Amino acid sequence: MDIRHSTNPADAKGYDTARLRQQYLIESVFVPGEVKLTYSHDDRLILGGAMPVKEALTLEAEDVLKTDYFLERREVAFMNIGGGEAFIDVEGERFTLVKLDTLYVGKGVRDLKIASVDADNPAKLYITSATAHAKYPTRKATVQEANTLNLGALESSNERTIHQVIHEVGIQSCQLMLGVTLFKPGSVWNTMPAHIHDRRMEAYLYFDMNDNARVFHFMGEPSETRHIVIANEQAVISPAWSVHSGAGTSSYAFVWAMAGENYTFKDMDVIPMNALK
């Protein structure tokens, strides 16, 4: 498991491109036949990917967590972002996930196996996990069952649909929040106007991009923004003090996940455009 320690804005001001990418970008999320995870000390979110091929995969606690099993003191969500269908067995109950389906599994589950329905067309399951102090029931949701918000406008190149899956009026959790944002044709800006929420961090996984497409992801304090160039199926960590916004060279989608103190989706401080520098 890769480890990313927390940073503060005073230090991040001095980061060059290589240091920004080393600290915040996760370049390889999906590896055939593996579970690949990154542990962020920002609100202790774990994020990564599972790409089962012939053999079923499991979540291992490893030495990083110092627990007997992965979900001893954690909750986890899986979203199928592409490829083929997947199934996840949770203590003997099987859940099948097609593209954009999400499965939430609560604290205390020991027996969990992840597999692809077709080894020749393996699923890509994006994984996010936060610490948990209480057990919530396992639940699956399709993107059609999510709470849907239509925001932005074509004139500002940010007409988009936000599907809130795990949140205060959706699938319940201790602190993990998760959803997916899809763009209308001709729109490329996400999360603009920008905002911050100092009570929780956020991570994005960008996907559904062609090989030559890129997203210019903006981060940093509003008065000290930086950018990271991101390719398809790469993820980025945004500390609580940072904006998290981006513009693509063509269409894309992204999964957003949050962890932290507040469980209210609307808890955000919008940054006026004249404050961005």
Score class of each variant (00 low, 15 high):
Gln144Phe: 14
Glu168Ile: 14
Ala134His: 15
Phe216Glu: 00
Glu159Cys: 08
Pro222His: 10
Thr191Gln: 02
Ser156Trp: 11
Leu125Tyr: 04
Gln144Cys: 11
Met209Ser: 00
Val165Asp: 01
Pro193Ser: 07
Ile196Val: 13
Lys135Thr: 14
Gln175Met: 11
Val215Ser: 00
Arg226Phe: 04
Pro137Cys: 13
Asn158Cys: 11
Met201Glu: 02
Arg200Asp: 01
Thr225Pro: 12
Arg214Glu: 04
Tyr126Thr: 11
Arg199Leu: 13
Arg160Phe: 02
Met192His: 12
Asp118Tyr: 07
Glu145Arg: 11
Asp208Pro: 03
Glu224Ala: 03
Trp189Met: 13
Asn190Trp: 00
Leu125Pro: 06
Phe183Met: 08
Gly220Thr: 09
Thr128Tyr: 15
Ala132Arg: 02
Gly170Lys: 12
Ala203Gly: 11
Glu155Trp: 12
Leu182Ala: 02
Thr191Leu: 02
Tyr136Asn: 09
Tyr126Gln: 07
Asp198Met: 13
Phe207Asn: 02
Asp118Arg: 09
Arg200Tyr: 11
Tyr136His: 13
Ala194Glu: 05
Val143Trp: 03
Leu151Ser: 02
Phe183Val: 01
Gln175Ile: 12
Phe218Glu: 00
Gly170Ser: 07
Leu125Met: 05
Ala146Ile: 04
Thr148Ser: 09
Met209Pro: 01
Glu224His: 15
Arg214Gln: 05
Asn150Leu: 13
His197Ala: 15
Ala119Met: 08
Glu202Asp: 10
Arg200Trp: 04
Asn212Asp: 12
Val215Met: 05
Thr128Arg: 10
Ser173Leu: 03
Ile166Asn: 00
Val180Lys: 03
Gly186Ser: 06
Asp118Ser: 08
Ala203Lys: 08
Ala146Leu: 07
Met192Gly: 13
Glu168Trp: 03
Asp198Ile: 09
Ser223Asn: 06
Lys124Arg: 09
Ala123Thr: 07
Arg226Ile: 00
Thr148Asn: 05
Thr142Met: 03
Tyr204Asn: 08
Met201Asp: 03
Lys135Ser: 13
Asn158Tyr: 03
His133Pro: 03
Ala141Trp: 00
Leu151Trp: 12
Pro137Met: 08
Val165His: 01
Thr128His: 08
Asp118Asn: 14
His167Ile: 04
His167Lys: 05
Pro137Val: 14
His195Met: 07
Glu145Thr: 14
Thr225His: 10
Ala153Arg: 13
Glu224Gln: 07
Thr131Leu: 14
Ile196Thr: 13
Arg139Met: 10
Asn158Lys: 08
Leu176Lys: 05
Pro222Trp: 10
Met177Thr: 09
Asp198Glu: 15
Asp198Asn: 06
